[in-house]
Design a protein around this nucleic acid. Sequence first.
DNA 1: CTATATTGTGAACGGTTATTCACAATACCA
DNA 2: TGGTATTGTGAATAACCGTTCACAATATAG
Lengths: 200, 200
Amino acid sequence: MRAAKRKTEVRQEQIAQSALTLIARHGFHRLSIAALAREVGVVPSAIYRHYQGKEEVLDAVLELVSQRLLENVEAARRETANALERLHALLMRHVALVQNGVPIPRVVFSEEIFTGHRKRRQRVHQIFQQYLGRVAGMIQEGQRAGAIRSEFSPVTLSVMFLGLVQPSAILWLMSEGEFDFPQHVQNAWQVYCRMIQTKN
Amino acid sequence: MRAAKRKTEVRQEQIAQSALTLIARHGFHRLSIAALAREVGVVPSAIYRHYQGKEEVLDAVLELVSQRLLENVEAARRETANALERLHALLMRHVALVQNGVPIPRVVFSEEIFTGHRKRRQRVHQIFQQYLGRVAGMIQEGQRAGAIRSEFSPVTLSVMFLGLVQPSAILWLMSEGEFDFPQHVQNAWQVYCRMIQTKN
DNA sequence: CTATATTGTGAACGGTTATTCACAATACCA
DNA sequence: TGGTATTGTGAATAACCGTTCACAATATAG
């Protein structure tokens, strides 16, 4: 059966989304043009009507991931004005993102990143730094408002914030659901929160 | 030139070591039988005299990694009897391991793990759990000795301990050395330490 | 309605990879 | 020393992958 004709912008979006889905399901290195085309409902060579090649598709996927992450930050900001509550909200959203299969771990930890083309590694690094920057910003605001202890650097605290999710996410991915991911992040948050908040 | 004849146990060791080296240098997915054979100084088909296939080689690499990790734990235990100092020593050794190119991140975060054969994923999970178990043990000892606060679960604290290294390691790998890996782990340790130790 | 640009299709190509196999060299044992 | 098992070699194979291209169908503009 022949696939319907779509405008290239629409197809580009479809392709990037499908790529994200496939990576979430089977990982980065199993993303072949053939599988991607099948998911979109099109023939492999059709992909090349909308992207110059696989590299360009991967770049598009990265942009999608970046978008999701920053959307989360904005949503958390809107949710509450309190710094600690914002961090907590962001953490929960991050957990949901990982659980719903947005393959942040898979993309970020992927070998294609570390050993692939330099430009892409730099882009991921940039995405990371952007995200960390926003988190550090939240922390700094909390410090200025007197809700978070000022003796620790926001940068250090922001990287540690990432450390609340990452190991748990990996354990969860490996344990086939046995490891209680949200519960554990919750526990870690309790400890982290107790540590950084000012006493009263 | 013809390679010298070696006993199969010797070659197996050589092959596993070379595989580890290659993975540290270029990542998991670039480990081809051809490259591996070149590193060992032998012809590709010779690999099959000592391993049934690539899968078996990867299993051997995993065992090597497990070995290195547990050696680190033992070394840290020998180094001092104080719980907090032990954790700190282990942390420093872990940093050194990552920096020296023992590809713990690359192996552990690799897609071959998450999407590869089920048995291997389970093995990595087991290695993780073993390591975490030892760390939790150290923490529990510290709690019993009154050096570490008892209000937090050793399991939670052990996973958080991993969180001190992981995000930093990833940032370091991506930043092409720009990110000050040891310094940042040091900072995070200060925070972590202040949080878990009993006051006096 | 017709011409033209856009999008989809199927087949094919070159490159890489893991793996196999018949054969040759080497170590070991009786 | 001679025979046998072990290990190394080179060539060949089959599968997969990204990519290209000539051609067909479809939308759009004049």
